[in-house]
Write a protein that binds this DNA or RNA. Structure first.
Lengths: 210, 210
DNA sequence: AGTAGGTCTTGGCGATGTAAAGAACCGCAC
DNA sequence: GTGCGGTTCTTTACATCGCCAAGACCTACT
């Protein structure tokens, strides 16, 4: 999605909304969220600095759209992994959630970071909330399906296991994306293969005492 | 640490550095990092807007100090948990790291968020790097001690396990601090007891097939 | 006492987000 | 087609911000 400039002679842009979101992505990749400004977005779209206000109320509104778009891509990434796995392979599907999540984070690092900067977003936005919920449900439903398939029933640890799985997948993605953060802790020690880490994580979904 | 105003008649503040860091904390709690400005810090310390530059080179420098201070408190929190556990209880010490980490995140949410916003910080700062390293080492050393004590030796999964533990603890803290984020996924479902989640996490440190 | 150096003030610069008012354009009713 | 309402975009203005440079003030040391 490239930033489409407005033709200089024309008054209307044509697809300013798209162009602005493309500009957001471009800038956030180049400079991070701190480097993002409404005016620069407008500039890249070849439009005056007041124009964006008609499509997104303000900066927060614009970032909220950008984040929501990210969640939809994230859902797509999980769906992509699902498609490779048979419905009966509940363990495989469980791992697919983690894979889709981590893959998205790694391939859209800048956007991923924005998605979880709740101070920057309108957290009451319906679409944003909905997409977030869907991601969470992909995880919980896959876990539940696996437990059902392995006849484990519902045990009291399950709630904590859901939290742990959610924490680990998100935490891994965050750490992978924050390269400087890894630098701090590890200096090369911690340069893990996502697959191996996910395999370890899967163990918590197994019945105890195996 | 309260923000100490400069006495209006005096020319020197006396302890401006401390006062500014206190102001940072105050503002970040109230408004988040986005709401932070050098000028507002100066105002709260009763000092002109140019004054902070002499103590921290610029905004990034100020935030770096604030973050470093946070890492030191985090180390303190882990040490506090360690003190309650005997040296021979390697499992207890392992859990203590997670507890100290999560406790700090929960009791200093605003500061915790800043600490991991690497785009805002001077990531080459020696003290910052050092304190970060120390936190990571608290985890890895405790894991290594536990493995040594349980005669497991070094297995090839250990690296992935370290990553997983680090991811899970950090991820859990992040999710706990980002309340709005939890709202998205859970709406009450995911309001976990840190202790229960840590217990689940501890299982990965055990030898396989138990 | 005098001076060097650190602390703080002041004023100014360019940039930002938001608001309000006006210009250009589109589509629809007539 | 013509006129008109609503939308998209421009323009101007304002308060605030980070940073810089010049100067005033104070402390400490010789």
């Amino acid at each position: 999605m490239a930033v489409e400039q407005k033709a200089p002679n024309r008054y209307h842009h044509g697809d300013l909304r798209r162009a602005l979101l493309a500009a957001v992505d471009e800038i956030v990749r180049e400079l991070g969220v701190e480097g993002l400004s409404l005016r620069e977005c407008a500039r890249r779209a070849g439009v005056s600095h007041g124009a964006p206000a008609h499509h997104f109320r303000d900066k927060r509104g614009m970032l909220t759209e950008y984040a929501t778009d990210g969640f939809e891509k994230l859902l797509g990434s999980i769906a992509f992994e699902f498609d490779k796995i048979g419905l009966d392979d509940t363990m495989g599907r469980l791992k697919a959630v983690g894979k889709g999540y981590v893959n998205f984070a790694l391939s859209h690092q800048a956007q991923f970071k924005v998605m979880f900067r709740s101070e920057l977003l309108d957290n009451d936005n319906e679409r944003l909330l909905d997409r977030g919920r869907q991601v969470f449900e992909a995880l919980t439903k896959s876990l539940a399906a696996h437990w059902a398939a392995t006849n484990q029933g519902w045990r009291k640890e399950n709630l904590a296991q859901i939290s742990l799985a959610w924490s680990a997948v998100h935490g891994f993605a965050v750490l992978a994306v924050e390269a400087d953060l890894l630098r701090m802790g590890s200096e090369g020690l911690l340069n893990p293969d996502p697959d191996a880490v996910l395999d370890q994580l899967m163990l918590i979904a197994e019945p105890p005492g195996q």
